[in-house]
């Protein structure tokens, strides 16, 4: 599963060119003994002027399209999905992933600004303490951190106030 992080990195680097915070994400479906990437995306905040367009949310949208096309029930699919993301999901994304009931979350480096794991007990607030979602980090953490740090050294051109930090 860890190797899918490389694909998540590819997404992060792709959006970096568009001036986005370099975070990439893939949704890996474990179905019929087969691992399959069913969604992949990087942040898209600048282009949409919508600060909620984190990589995870773009992937969720792609899963909806995937399920519709294949006539599958979203909840059946999501419960078999591992979310692989280069940076720890923020509180918003973590809450959404808890709510949707994905199988697990693997992330690269921690997110000390908005981290869903670091700052808030998301499973308590979303009332999902029984079937606790496993959120684990530290996979290729250094690479993920370097990518973020390089970004924050430069300016985010479309954010006039403060940088759209994740």
């Amino acid at each position: 599963m860890e190797l899918f992080m490389i694909e998540a990195f590819a997404e992060a680097k792709r959006v970096l060119a568009a001036g986005e915070v370099p975070v990439g994400c893939v949704f890996v479906l474990d179905y019929d003994d087969k691992l399959q990437v069913i969604a992949r995306a990087g942040n898209d905040v600048n282009g949409t002027k919508n600060a909620t367009r984190h990589a995870e949310f773009l992937c969720i949208d792609q899963v909806m399209v995937f399920c519709k096309r294949k006539n599958l029930k979203e909840s059946d699919i999501l419960s078999k999905v591992t979310v692989v993301v280069t940076v720890e999901p923020c509180i918003m994304c973590s809450a959404a992933l808890h709510e949707l009931g994905v199988k697990e979350v693997l992330y690269g480096c921690a997110n000390d600004r908005f981290g869903g794991k670091t700052l808030v007990d998301v499973s308590y607030v979303t009332n999902k303490t029984h079937d606790k979602l496993h959120v684990n980090g530290g996979i290729y953490a250094d690479e993920a951190m370097t990518l973020l740090k390089d970004f924050y050294k430069g300016e985010n051109p479309s954010a006039p106030i403060t940088k759209t930090k994740r």
Binding site: K49, N50, A51, T52, C90, I91, M92, C93, A95, A96, E99, F114, V120, V122, V125, T126, A159, P160, I161, T164
Partner: peptide, 26 residues
């Protein structure tokens, strides 16, 4: 720029996802 300076009136208290979305949106 995003929701900077804007006020939101909601019929329901927002959940964690939505409440954080409004933080991101300023």
């Amino acid at each position: 720029y995003l929701c900077t300076g804007y006020d939101l009136y909601l019929s329901q208290e927002p959940c964690l996802m939505c409440a954080m979305a409004l933080v991101h949106s300023r």
